[in-house]
């Protein structure tokens, strides 16, 4: 396991997870830690609980239970004893730690004037393990190139199918340049700190040498800011869908900036049911659609489609 990940686990949990077989550790997608519940590991093939001897079980009662003390220790380790430094993060419900891993938090929400101010009495952590898959974007780059210009691309994928990983690798590949194209100026609006995994403003993932990251900024506003300030050639952002995003993306396209973005959905019909996305598709904002799935493992490219949803040549699994 990643040393940065180990550093936020309290002693007993750390020993337990280090006792898990290495090949399982490498497949980990999520570690879910809940107060008074066994630790749940989410692997490619499903969910398992961890027994006290490090073996995996599907029976919750056999799992090793996390007590309140460990939860408090973990809170201290994640926050470095400083909840005040995580005010914004606690409002959003997740923290990005060094290494780019994201920890979702749930507990008791504290409200102020009807808005969530913080989360207290934390009852569960969901550690989403970030994986860098360098090179996964390279085979699909040729499909995304128009005449001298990168085509506006929408990645459609159900959760946990490598959407963010592909976005990140596309950003990196475009930024470095590759056999198909010269490097371009890339700007990332990283609203949820997932793409670049910035901690204290520093990207924890390799997003390329020509990349500017606007961390934790709302997409619509961020896109506008970047167009004005950074003159990017390609803008990367994830999970569009709000009405204000449409205006911002329109603005970006008018400014001649290419856009790579993603949306939740398992097929083309799915996203056509969402009004804002349908509107964008109707206006012909996107030229390429990439559909991800897990038919041959996480991150399988199920298909690449052109403007009118005509299937372009399929790329084999990544």
């Amino acid at each position: 396991m990643d040393t940065q990940l180990i550093a936020i686990l309290p002693g007993p949990i750390r020993h337990l997870l280090q006792g898990v077989a290495p090949n399982i550790q490498n497949q980990l997608e999520e570690i879910r830690i809940r107060r008074e519940q066994p630790i749940e590991l989410i692997l490619g093939q499903g969910s398992r609980f961890v027994c006290s001897n490090g073996e995996l079980t599907s029976h919750p009662a056999k799992g090793w239970k996390v007590n309140s003390l460990e939860m408090d220790k973990m809170t201290n380790l994640i926050s470095q004893h400083s909840l005040y430094a995580l005010e914004e993060e606690l409002k959003r419900g997740y923290v990005t730690i060094t290494g780019g891993h994201r920890i979702g938090i749930s507990g008791k929400a504290i409200l102020e004037k009807g808005e969530v101010r913080a989360i207290r009495d934390i009852s569960s952590f969901n550690i989403r393990i970030a994986r860098e898959m360098k090179g996964v974007a390279l085979p699909i780059i040729p499909y995304l190139l128009g005449q001298k210009k990168f085509l506006n691309t929408l990645i459609i994928s159900p959760p946990q199918c490598g959407k963010t990983t592909l976005l990140r690798d596309l950003a990196r590949t475009v930024s470095y340049g590759n056999v198909h194209m010269a490097g371009k100026k890339v700007a990332i609006v990283d609203e949820r700190s997932e793409i670049a995994g910035s901690v204290g403003g520093i990207p924890q993932r390799d997003v390329g040498p020509r990349t500017d990251v606007l961390d934790a900024c709302p997409k619509a506003e961020g896109i506008m800011m970047l167009i004005r300030s950074m003159s990017p050639e390609v803008i990367v952002c994830d999970e569009i869908g709000r009405p204000e995003d449409v205006v911002a993306i329109q603005e970006a396209l008018n400014a001649g900036v290419s856009l790579i973005t993603s949306v939740h959905g398992s097929n083309l019909a799915d996203i056509n049911r969402r009004p804002t996305i349908r509107q964008m598709i109707g206006q012909g904002m996107f030229h390429r659609y990439i559909l991800l799935g897990r038919s041959k493992g996480v991150g399988t490219v199920e298909g690449i489609y052109g403007e009118n949803f005509q299937s372009l040549e399929k790329v084999e699994s990544l």
Binding site: P10, G11, D72, K73, M74, T75, N76, L77, Q80, H81
Partner: peptide, 13 residues
């Protein structure tokens, strides 16, 4: 103490 004691509570450190 805060950095080395494995998440021991702040007040204890």
């Amino acid at each position: 103490f805060l950095t080395h004691y494995d998440g021991l509570s702040t007040s204890d450190c």
